[in-house]
Simulated scan of single mutants.
Amino acid sequence: MSRSSTVAVAHLRMAETATPPEVFQISFVFPNGDKYEGECIRTASRVLERNGVGTHKTPNGIIYKENWMNDKMNGIGRLEHPSGAVYEGEFSDNMFHGTGACTFPNAVKYTGNFFENKLEGEGEFVDTQGLEWKGKFHFTAAPGLQLKHRM
């Protein structure tokens, strides 16, 4: 057996015997007044880290619900702003990233792809008049955007 395959087998055996970290249910208030209720794990350095499902609320009314990984919003979640704006969809490292929908208090809505908090790729947009648009979005530009006709 070659050295690389011996190392690979050793890593595989370690992974098979490694126990998953214990999950804790906590309610925690941060020094700035933020509150977190949900699941966490203790890292190798003995620090509690948000991992799993939980809700984070800020004193000014921002609420994030659902999935956490590595102490960040990761996976599917919902972010509510006190203005009434809501984002529901995929998060990666605290950013809108993947597929999601952003709805604003004035009924404007974007549904589609996000890349690091920016509109990016195929999506649909409903404007303040209720008109529906479809096309490719690139941050604040939407070249070739087309109005969806209702017949």
Rank of each mutant, 00 (worst) to 15 (best):
E90H: 13
F24V: 00
K65H: 10
S83I: 06
W133Q: 09
N32C: 10
K109N: 06
G135N: 08
G112K: 04
M73H: 11
H97S: 12
F24P: 06
R46E: 11
I26P: 08
F96Y: 14
R78I: 15
E22L: 10
V29I: 12
R78D: 10
N113K: 13
G130Y: 07
F139H: 15
I26F: 03
K134D: 08
Y110H: 03
V23W: 03
E49K: 11
N94P: 10
H81E: 10
Q25A: 06
M14H: 11
V108G: 02
L79K: 12
E88G: 02
Y110T: 02
F30C: 07
G84L: 03
T128V: 14
T19R: 15
F24L: 11
N51H: 11
N60H: 13
A101C: 14
E37V: 14
T99G: 02
R42F: 06
P31Q: 00
N106M: 07
G121A: 02
F30W: 13
M73E: 08
T128Q: 13
G84Y: 09
I62A: 02
G98D: 03
D34R: 09
H138W: 13
I63F: 09
D127N: 12
W133A: 04
H56Q: 12
E66R: 13
L48A: 00
P20I: 00
F30G: 01
L48K: 09
T55Y: 05
F115R: 13
G112H: 03
A15F: 09
N113C: 08
V126P: 04
Y110W: 04
L12D: 11
R46Q: 12
T58I: 03
T99H: 13
N32F: 01
I26T: 08
N67K: 12
W133D: 03
T103D: 01
A107K: 15
V86G: 05
H56I: 04
G121P: 05
H81G: 01
A85C: 11
K109F: 04
F139Q: 15
R78H: 10
C40W: 06
P82F: 07
G100P: 01
F30Y: 15
I26M: 01
